[in-house]
C-alpha cells in the first residue's frame, strides 16, 4: 500500500462506500442508456449518471486515482468517438437510405418494445451516452485542474500543482 495517491481525497468511509457504489452507478447509467428507446431516459440522462460515477471517484479519492480510473486523454478520445458515431449514423442514412439521418435499420413490428427495436435510435443513444458521460467528467476534471488567479490586479490562467496528465 505505498500508493502515492492513497492519502488524497476524503476519509476511508467515503472511499469504501465509493468503491462499492461506482459499479452500481455505472450499471444503472448503462441501463438508462440502453433502454432509452423503451423507458424514460436515454443517452443524455444515462450519460450524466455514468459521468456521476467517475466524478464520485474523482471527488472521494482525489484527482490522482480519479484520472487513473478515466484519464483525460482517454476521456477526450471517447468524447470525440461518441460524437463521430452519432454523425456516422446520420451519414449512413445518406449512404443506405438517401437522406441524412434516415432510419436504415428496419425492425419488424413484432419486435416493438423489445431491447433490439426502434431502428437507429439505440445506436444514437449509445453515442450520446458516451459523449455526455465523458465530456461531463472532463468538465469537472478541467475545472479542478485549471483556475483563474488574480495576481497584482491581473487575471491569469493557472494549472494546479497536482495536475500531471
Amino acid at each position: 500500500m505505498n500508493d502515492p495517491h492513497a492519502k488524497e481525497g476524503m476519509s476511508l468511509i467515503v472511499k469504501t462506500v465509493t468503491r462499492w457504489l461506482k459499479g452500481f452507478l455505472l450499471l444503472y447509467g448503462a441501463y438508462i442508456v440502453l433502454y432509452g428507446h423503451l423507458t424514460p431516459g436515454g443517452g443524455f440522462a444515462g450519460g450524466v449518471i455514468v459521468a456521476c460515477a467517475f466524478i464520485l471517484v474523482f471527488l472521494a479519492c482525489g484527482a490522482g486515482i480519479g484520472h487513473r480510473t478515466l484519464g483525460r486523454l482517454a476521456a477526450s478520445e471517447l468524447d470525440s468517438a461518441g460524437a463521430l458515431i452519432f454523425t456516422a449514423v446520420g451519414a449512413l442514412g445518406i449512404a443506405l437510405g438517401g437522406v441524412f439521418f434516415r432510419n436504415f435499420i428496419r425492425t419488424p413490428p413484432e419486435a416493438h418494445f423489445r431491447l433490439l427495436s426502434s431502428g437507429v435510435i439505440p445506436v444514437c443513444n449509445i453515442a450520446i451516452g458516451l459523449k455526455v458521460g465523458t465530456s461531463l467528467f472532463m468538465v469537472l476534471a478541467i475545472l479542478s485542474a485549471v483556475h483563474v488567479a488574480v495576481k497584482g490586479g491581473r487575471r491569469r490562467m493557472v494549472r494546479r500543482r497536482e495536475d500531471k496528465s
Binding site: S80, T87, I94, G98
Partner: peptide, 25 residues
Amino acid sequence: MDNLTPMFVVIPLAAGFVIPMVSRR
C-alpha cells in the same frame, strides 16, 4: 432531396471532433 444541404453542418462538426483525435498523433 439535395444531400448537399446537411453537409454544410456535418462536415465541420465531424472535422471538429476528428482534428483533436488525429493531430495528437
